[in-house]
């Protein structure tokens, strides 16, 4: 089971190493880990997608909370959240096939962000399943490269955030 765990951490050197080291030392599996600034310059938010049963994820949550510079930990499982990935995909596509691909890109509300004679780079964002679906439909053209941010998430307002 995938859980999205969100941790507010002090914006200090070494915090990422503490968190990543804890995951490695305890054998927890990270699917993705994203760190970014927040509205408070002293805090960063880490959004970590972990795979494991409830018991393991409970340990992940507790072990994270034990790390001194980790200020707050939330498990977004079973909570209404908005979860998004951002992805850049370079697709091999000759000019004659571009109109066809454009329709697909529109359907996924993607944007073309770079064009070369043989390729298009597309930016897509959304839930993870959408990324997967987009990659599936692009596969027949030939995918040259993918860069993904990993998931970030925020609880929906009024969802009873602790």
């Amino acid at each position: 089971m995938k859980h999205i765990i969100s941790a507010l951490v002090e914006n200090k050197p070494g915090v990422l190493a503490h968190v990543a080291g804890m995951f490695a030392a305890r054998g927890f599996n990270i699917d993705s880990l994203v760190v970014g600034r927040t509205e408070d310059p002293k805090l960063s938010r880490m959004t970590i997608v972990v795979i494991g049963d409830d018991r393991i994820v409970e340990q992940v949550r507790k072990q994270l909370a034990r790390i001194v510079p980790v200020v707050k930990v939330q498990d977004f499982m079973d909570k209404p959240v908005v979860a998004r990935d951002l992805m850049l995909v370079t697709i091999a596509v000759p000019p004659e096939k571009r109109p066809e691909l454009s329709t697909l890109i529109d359907m996924f509300r993607g944007h073309v962000v770079d064009i070369s004679p043989k390729t298009l780079m597309v930016e897509v964002s959304g839930p993870e399943t959408k990324m997967e679906a987009f990659l599936d439909v692009c596969k027949p053209y030939g995918i040259k490269g993918v860069a993904r941010t990993g998931t970030i998430a925020m609880p929906r307002q009024g969802s009873g955030e602790e």
Binding site: K12, P13, G14, A17, H18, G21, A25, I67, V68
Partner: peptide, 14 residues
């Protein structure tokens, strides 16, 4: 040192 001792300390910093 902080890298080497991180897993064997409750906390460390430089």
């Amino acid at each position: 040192t902080t890298g080497i001792t991180r897993p064997v300390t409750k906390y460390n910093s430089i």
